[in-house]
Amino acid sequence: MAPSLLHPPSQLSPAAALQLSQQAPAVLQSSPSTVSASPLSALFSASESPELWTKYENLLLSCLRTGDERAAHQCLERLVARFGDDNERVMAFKGLLKEADAANNGQLELVLKEYDQILSDNDTNIPITKRRIALLRSLGRVSDAASSLVRLLDFSPTDAEAWSELAEIYLTQGLYAQAIYALEEVLVLAPNAWNIHARLGEMQYMAATAPGAGTGAGPYRKYLAEALKRFARSIELCDDYLRGYYGLKLVTSKVLKDSAGSAKQNEADEFSLPDPATIERLNELATAKLSEIVRHAAARDPGWRGYDELEVTAARELLNKDASALPEVVR
């Protein structure tokens, strides 16, 4: 099924992006090259729809990704013709094109200076601020990017996308506590986002299993307990959530393996783990659900085709690994 041009294309596979950008000539041909903003001409010409501009934006992103600069410039021209040079969103797209066209780091520094110039005129231009942060990160100046992002969040604390970016930046730097804090802020803003719950669980699992964390210590158990709860919450928000069950299985297996070695636990704080019998049952549930999902997805049953193939493969590998290690876990 062809991907729709109405959705942001950044998560698509390269093949899908190529497919989208190959639609560019047809889309550009079929829609009028200029749409006037004046109400008088709107009476006589075909009316514009919001979808058209979404399409142009997504087409622009796909074409840039696949290296079709000509079509990207055409899309940008149309956006500029409609919304003007000083529209903040359009300015961000112009910057994006310049970043893509830049041949070396010197030219990128020029683009960065341009962003700074724009921001010195109007420092509430959030799309350009985000572009500047993304460019800083892309140039490898990650700590600069993080501090700019913190300043942006001081000024606009309800921007869930920015909090999420901050969490990823902290994660790349290995600052687990800060990353988890930032992602919790995202959850405050979007409490029903099941993928963010799963992501937070993944981060807490990473924090627990990071080389420096050490086992048996307080934070280690706390992270594991919280990860367990996050994954359980993501499943509660979304039936048959492959990623949630995968994480649940991972965490419960880890906890069971640990408690097989040392039976001591139960510090009476709010992050204590549930009792081993419950964890055992959770593990069994996750295994059963995962194998059901893998079986259906492998058979391409109708109603089970929405899963990402890579995720299904990973789940199958986890199940196989678990099956081979089963005698030790069960005892």
Binding site: L6, H7, P8, S10, Q11, P14, A17, L18, L61, L64, R65, T66, G67, A92, L96, E99, A100, A102, P127, K130, R131, I133, A134, R137, S138, A160, E161, A162, S164, E165, V186, A190, N192, A193, W194, N195, I196, R199
Partner: peptide, 25 residues
Amino acid sequence: VGNPYRILETRPGFVDIRKQRREFA
């Protein structure tokens, strides 16, 4: 729109276009 919270993970506002181009190439 699929999962509406997906943009919190893909973050189109912070897209690193040069990395995407490298990966595509």
